[in-house]
Amino acid sequence: MYIPNKPAKYGINIVLVCDVRSKYMIDASPYLGKNTGITINEPLGSYYCKLLTKTIDGTNRNLTSDNWFTSIPLAEQLLKPPYNLTLIGTIRNNKQEIPAEFKHNSLRGVGTSLFGFHEKLTLVSYKPKPQKTVLLLSTMHDKPSVDPVSGKPVIIQSYNETKGAVDTFDQMCGHSSCSRKTKRWPLCMFYGMLNMALLNSYIIYVSNCEIMKTKPMTRREFLKKLSKDLCKDWCAIRLEERPLMQKRVRAAINESIGHNTDDDTDEPGIKKGKRSRCDFCDPKLKLSIILKQDYHLGESPKDQFLVMCMPAPVGIETSEQSISEAWKIKPPYSSGVDQHRFTFSYRGGADSAATGTCVCGARGPHEAFTTVKGTNTISIYEKEKKATALGKF
């Protein structure tokens, strides 16, 4: 909807009721348009007020509302069972129950107050400025009390002290928001619900810390910890159901859920601790590479290939198809795979051989696979062209 006098003019309007002291959101409901209350033959303000206060009916609390909600019939109904609630709120001067003497009059002095009483209702008209008159209705006050210091009616002071809970709650949601820009209104609604739930949880947390007399975390620290705790169970399920996960993703999940990863490298042939060279082959190993048809090394003296090594499965054949099938069931980033870089010196045409030497133990994203010797498997792909190179050694 569009509200021109609001800081955020466009958006989904959600009507809230909040606790004054803690700013805890008690209930909320989205505004669904002018036709919402027609079926029950009731003004929208009264409809939403009764809807949102169901959880506190019968608690003898007070409601503070603006002039969109406040009306004489609503105030009278809230005093009766099952509501048993009092009401303080500004009221529009176009209501038919308002006497003409209480409306704006330029001849009235600034700072004057008029009180009107009807059964348990109290109406006050206060003129703070020459061109402004404020009307408030209260079922909590029954005396024409005026503060001697400020000169304002006590009803207005009570209203000012209790009117800011919803605005403060909305402001706090905006300060630490998880919302993202989107054109899908259901997702926008979900972000709003999530912001309100996160703030409510922090309010409960702070209240519990006050009871236990402990220092609470900052809201930023609380939200970070809460987000990790909410993801923890799902990350554990993902870790269990997806064994073929990239090594860096698995390490990040283990770190986030607090799993000990010291035993992640217990596979045969793997040494624990930091490694600078491959554990499966000699760093000075010389390879003879036979290039595939229609593939040529570059004109530069050396071409670099990213290489992956793993212990060869028992009974594997030395054919390219067998090696490719073996790699399909082995996660490239698992603890049983080493990655390092080979450089090759070009000597001749496409059918000629090139020799390669392992020059570093760097580990990074792999490009692909190939070759077998004894109990070791080495896979090689050219980094940019992604061409497979077959080799024997």
Rank of each mutant, 00 (worst) to 15 (best):
residue 371 T to S: 14
residue 166 V to W: 00
residue 27 D to S: 06
residue 26 I to E: 11
residue 341 R to M: 12
residue 27 D to M: 02
residue 156 I to G: 01
residue 205 Y to H: 14
residue 94 N to Y: 03
residue 50 K to V: 02
residue 47 Y to A: 05
residue 129 K to Q: 10
residue 178 C to Y: 00
residue 340 H to Y: 11
residue 25 M to N: 15
residue 56 I to V: 12
residue 92 R to Y: 01
residue 103 K to P: 02
residue 247 K to C: 06
residue 215 K to L: 11
residue 22 S to A: 09
residue 199 L to D: 07
residue 336 G to I: 09
residue 32 L to C: 08
residue 219 R to G: 00
residue 189 M to C: 12
residue 296 H to E: 10
residue 158 S to M: 04
residue 269 G to N: 07
residue 279 D to A: 14
residue 333 Y to G: 15
residue 50 K to Y: 01
residue 215 K to Q: 11
residue 88 I to V: 11
residue 188 C to H: 12
residue 118 H to Y: 13
residue 199 L to T: 06
residue 133 T to G: 00
residue 318 T to R: 09
residue 365 P to Y: 12
residue 154 V to E: 13
residue 3 I to S: 08
residue 82 P to M: 06
residue 74 L to G: 01
residue 333 Y to I: 08
residue 285 L to C: 08
residue 239 L to V: 05
residue 385 K to T: 15
residue 142 D to Q: 13
residue 12 I to W: 02
residue 22 S to R: 11
residue 27 D to E: 12
residue 288 S to V: 11
residue 70 T to D: 00
residue 1 M to K: 09
residue 249 V to T: 15
residue 56 I to M: 05
residue 178 C to P: 02
residue 16 L to V: 04
residue 185 W to L: 04
residue 288 S to D: 10
residue 318 T to A: 09
residue 146 V to Q: 05
residue 15 V to F: 10
residue 56 I to Y: 05
residue 1 M to H: 11
residue 186 P to S: 08
